[in-house]
Nucleic acid binder design. Structure first.
Length: 219
DNA sequence: TACCAGGAGAAAA
DNA sequence: TTTTCTCATGGT
């Protein structure tokens, strides 16, 4: 994958959409909580769920662990998959408290931290990388469904390649820059949302006529 | 009405 | 080991 192509795509996205100011949260813990709640879920619904937690004074790891799973699930209902997410959020908070919360975790090397995050049931590769990039400020590129769709349409990567393969390709092609990775992933999500807005069932982002600006494979 | 959304884990093949 | 199924509310 060519560095120039990735930089050009980024430059066009940034020029078109501007800075995205991600992640929308008040603390690193809230970033991590949101990363779990947004799994296969629109962010607006996650905000409702987080609002419920805040209204019930349950926006801390200790409060979440102290809350029965059933009650937690009711507050998380707007984010969908509420039973599963209640269990995942509690699993994560229990682990988070055991390992010493944010200050303790911050001293770990990125690879070790990623390994530990992935050991928590309910935290998969994308969720762990969201946490590493947006909560821990580590230069890790997040690969999501939008990234696969857009960059495979641009013929810059293979749609069916494994998560680690794609992440490695992006990280090797770009400089290890937290600000760049932060903005790039946010811009991809923003672009996919806008490009898909006119046609909810969008299978051809970036090469379709309704795309706000057409990337071409050779641009 | 039907489809999709900032995935992950369990079960089946 | 790889593929398929399940989880679920809210917006369009």
């Amino acid at each position: 994958m060519a560095w120039l192509s990735l930089r050009r795509v980024y430059n066009r996205l940034y020029k078109h959409y501007g800075p995205q100011h991600w992640w929308p949260a008040d603390s690193p813990f809230e970033v991590m909580l949101g990363a779990i709640l947004t799994q296969n879920t629109a962010w607006g619904n996650v905000e409702r769920a987080i609002g419920n937690l805040r209204a019930n004074h349950c926006l801390s790891p200790r409060a979440i662990v102290a809350t029965p799973e059933k009650a937690l699930a009711q507050w998380l209902k707007p984010s969908g998959y509420f039973n599963i997410k209640a269990r995942r959020v509690r699993n994560f908070c229990q682990w988070y408290l055991e390992v010493g919360e944010f200050p303790g975790l911050s001293v770990l090397a990125t690879d070790e931290l990623r390994k530990q995050l992935l050991s928590v049931s309910g935290v998969g590769p994308e969720t762990a990388d969201d946490m590493l990039l947006y909560a821990f400020q580590r230069p890790v590129f997040v690969i999501d469904a939008y990234t696969r769709r857009i960059f495979s349409r641009l013929q810059l990567l293979e749609h069916d390649a494994g998560y680690e393969t794609l992440r490695s390709q992006f990280e090797q092609a770009l400089s290890a820059d937290v600000t760049l990775f932060n903005e790039y992933h946010a811009l991809i999500v923003q672009h996919a949302k806008v490009a898909c807005k006119k046609r909810p069932v969008c299978q051809a982002c970036c090469l379709a006529r309704h795309c706000p600006f057409s990337f071409q494979p050779a641009c």
